[in-house]
């Protein structure tokens, strides 16, 4: 892994075109990069490392190898009613921050490509990888 020193830009027009696909969940469209961009990891590592994590996750969980499935899992409980969402005022960034913290606290973590990650951020890496391919 190389040292992370940049902020992620869009991963390409393929991603931009796909964002509309996420429209089924409320308030998501304008902040959709949060879906496929594991914000904290993007501070620590570069694109290729995130893709490697994504590939490893999909290899371990082939049943989730679809945009719809990953999106659904990543956004689970983002329905406007969850405690995490209420506590974070509906912001998707805050929602993910809270969800990832909660997953670590509950031991809902996985070792993917060696990284000890919360399940949601691992899925975000997977979605990033899938979108990059499409």
């Amino acid at each position: 892994m190389t040292r992370r020193s940049f902020v992620f830009t869009m991963v390409g027009t393929a991603v931009a075109a796909t964002l509309a696909y996420f429209g089924c969940k409320r308030q998501v469209t304008s902040q959709s990069s949060a879906l496929y961009l594991p914000h904290f990891l993007s501070i620590l590592m570069d694109k290729s490392a995130i893709e490697e994590i994504g590939k490893s996750y999909l290899k371990k969980h082939p049943e989730e190898n679809s945009i719809e499935k990953l999106k659904s899992n990543i956004l689970s409980s983002f329905d406007g009613n969850s405690l995490a969402q209420k506590e974070t005022g509906g912001s998707i960034d805050k929602f993910f921050e809270s969800k990832i913290l909660s997953e670590f606290r509950n031991g809902n973590q996985e070792v993917i490509d060696g990284w000890v990650l919360s399940v949601t951020e691992a899925r975000q890496c997977a979605l990033f990888t899938v979108l990059n391919k499409s």
């Binding site: 620590l44 990832i100 913290l101 606290r105 973590q109 060696g114 990284w115 000890v116 990650l117 919360s118």
Partner: peptide
Amino acid sequence: YLLFGQQVGISGIGRVKLMDFLQ
């Protein structure tokens, strides 16, 4: 290391990566 990785995750200071032999 799983426990340490968890605690690092909770603290929000970073992330831990295991070497291959521990995966």
